[in-house]
Design a binder for these strands. Structure first.
Lengths: 381, 381
DNA sequence: GGCGGTTAAGTCGGTCTACTAACAAACATG
DNA sequence: CATGTTTGTTAGTAGACCGACTTAACCGCC
């Protein structure tokens, strides 16, 4: 008999909080399963949904009836193909019945926003100069901006998604965003209160990763590098977004990659950002003839490849995506980076690895903000 | 109305399989929640369990009754502290009522195994020379070895855990392990069949990470580097083990870290293993006076720190653990690696980062194999 | 010493969820 | 036109959790 459960080594060290699961949560999960299938695979009959989810037809019918009543799905008539038996009635997700409001704060000079369909397409676009606005004033501006977007929506709005620079926790609290003079700011909660809508906030580069995963068809183990004024990253591992111990996952821009390199805005030297950010790349190739420019870009590519190799090796990533100006990234730089990456990782790791351009354009962050809402409100991603 | 759900960009690309959840799965989850609490926090009253899990006392009593009937928990009398109200009856997990058989295949010369308590302590140890045994012959040997361990157990055996080199998928199939001449070998299924017990197999370094997480009190975002004949790694992200796109996560040993470095067994040059594996370290310091040896080790530490910086930055890890010979690792090497890591990542990342020795000794892999069983059979980790 | 207040645990009935079994509807085929 | 096949619905059942009530055991205070 053992009154001393704690004689083991180091037991009881960390409290791994997990929360209870009720039958209703199970139902919510199954409901999401149905939506997820309809979202990614298109209209499907109840019987096929049952086969795909391995739930019974009865349960599927029940779930579909609820979704029909909510207006999230609709019946689309009988399936075209003529087969034996009673013809199936197709059920499809009404991706145009609801809309999502997305806000992109990654550019500190201009706030960008859109009303989007559930499939990630912008219906209405707005932007607003925001240079110099910081702190609470900026929050006010965002709230007003979001309100105009909500007003511009032509369908009921499911929620509001925000991609913000800085460190953002899972609850949408901005832990720190120096450029915006934000610290420990519960941005999601504030906006949810003012807009009376569900609001979800995440780091902009992490949002980009979500967008490429959900809308861009990227693999479940992948990394997205966003190259713009700075360099950011978002990582998905085994189909889940990586948050990190202090919600700061993806901070690759300020990892040192060049010994005794150029000084960086962060105060140190040789950060990835000092060679890979768009301004740095433009400076590196300005005034050079094409061949020399390619050589310069290839050099950056090799540096990038060397920096990514340990990450790819440790996580066995399937996709590495570059998001940013294609004229700078999608050429010698990408080729050299892929070659270096392949050379510096073992074949088992490099096999099946892709290093390609992100498939979404400058709307990545907006689309990712939409995915935040989609995932949280409907369980679809 | 939208018959064209698939007009979005790239929708329907990847099938993200998730399986249905039934109420009984919810119950299994809640049951694990109770066990998890008892395991990590020690004996607890039903009422306290209810408060900790936010389930009701009714449900907790029901779950506890089932666990009592199974002999997994026991009543331990009233709580010592005298307070108002009816004294609570403590319920404790009977960590000595069941045992786990663990096998460590990381050393190709000798197979190590143990009968372990649920708290990860070895009760019986066995080892068996295995040099030269490969392929099916080795599988036979493992099966017989495991059978003797099962026979040596003094309590009912919950299951068998195996830590193996090579790439192992979630189902315990060894995708490839060149040294053992294994390819696409369903090791877990074979052993489960022969032993008539649940068997779980995972990569040895990944097992080590699990062990440090569960028994060693490591954070939920961490990386364990195992340094021995070779170099392996296991990664946990946000409390979950990383599998990787092709189940090859943690292959850091063969990431290139030195340009034009020493040739490696894998056929390439300058792999981390060529500088960090125990034989390489011993060779690097042999015949040197202490100061020169420390300088050599510090050099390796700096190389290691530079290789880990991108990983730590991308994942925002809280812990990096070194498992291996302390006389080589726990000195100048570790200090230099930590310093380099701190210098090469941004403060937000480096803050709260620890680089320390693993807290478990040479039993790490065995303990990790036990966690495989613990997690899969009882939901505790 | 008795009595109210407090906390722990068990009991009973109700709700929710998904399942099995059986059935009606609609179509293709011979 | 009968038969077989597939779809979707209806009715009944078992599991899982909860709220409300009850019993049990203890403290403290008049």
């Amino acid at each position: 008999m053992s009154t001393s459960t704690r004689t083991g080594r180091g037991l009881g060290a960390g409290l791994r909080a997990t929360s209870k699961v009720l039958p209703e949560h199970a139902r919510a999960h199954n409901r999401s399963l149905v939506l997820q299938h309809l979202f990614h695979e298109g209209p499907t009959s109840r019987a096929d949904l049952a086969r795909a989810t391995s739930l019974t037809r009865v349960t599927i019918s029940d779930l579909v009836n609820v979704l029909l009543a909510e207006g999230l799905v609709e019946e689309l008539g009988v399936q075209p193909g003529r087969r034996v038996g009673k013809p199936a009635i197709l059920v499809g997700m009404r991706t145009d019945a609801y809309q999502i409001v997305a806000v992109d704060l990654s550019d500190d000079a201009v706030m960008r926003g859109a009303v989007m369909t559930l499939t990630g397409e912008a219906v209405v676009r707005r932007s607003l100069p925001a240079a110099g606005r910081v702190g609470d004033e900026l929050v006010d501006l965002i709230a007003r901006f979001a309100r105009t977007l909500v007003a511009a929506a032509t369908r009921p709005v499911v929620g509001v998604g925000v991609g913000s620079p800085g460190v953002v926790d899972a609850a949408g609290r901005v832990i720190e965003a120096p450029n915006r003079q934000w610290a420990d700011l519960p941005l999601a909660a504030i906006l949810a209160d003012r807009l009376a809508l569900p609001v979800h906030v995440a780091n902009d580069a992490n949002s980009a990763a979500l967008a490429e995963y959900t809308y861009g068809g990227a693999a479940g183990s992948m990394l997205v590098l966003t190259v713009g004024q700075g360099v950011g990253a978002g990582v998905m591992v085994d189909g889940a977004r990586v948050h990190g111990a202090a919600d700061a996952a993806g901070e690759l821009g300020h990892v040192t990659v060049v010994d005794d390199g150029e000084p960086c805005a962060c105060g140190r030297r040789g950060c990835l950002e000092t060679v890979l950010a768009a301004p740095a790349l433009r400076a590196a190739v300005s005034g050079l003839d094409p061949a020399a420019a390619d050589a310069a870009l290839a050099g950056v590519g090799r540096t990038l490849g060397a920096a990514l190799a340990p990450v790819v090796g440790a996580l066995n990533l399937a996709d590495v995506l570059l998001s940013g100006p294609p004229e700078l990234l999608d050429g010698a730089l990408r080729t050299a980076a892929l070659q270096t990456l392949t050379e510096r990782t073992m074949p088992a790791t490099a096999r099946g690895l892709q290093l390609r351009m992100a498939s979404l354009d400058e709307d990545v962050v907006l689309a990712g903000a939409a995915v935040l809402v989609l995932a949280a409100q409907l369980g679809v991603s």
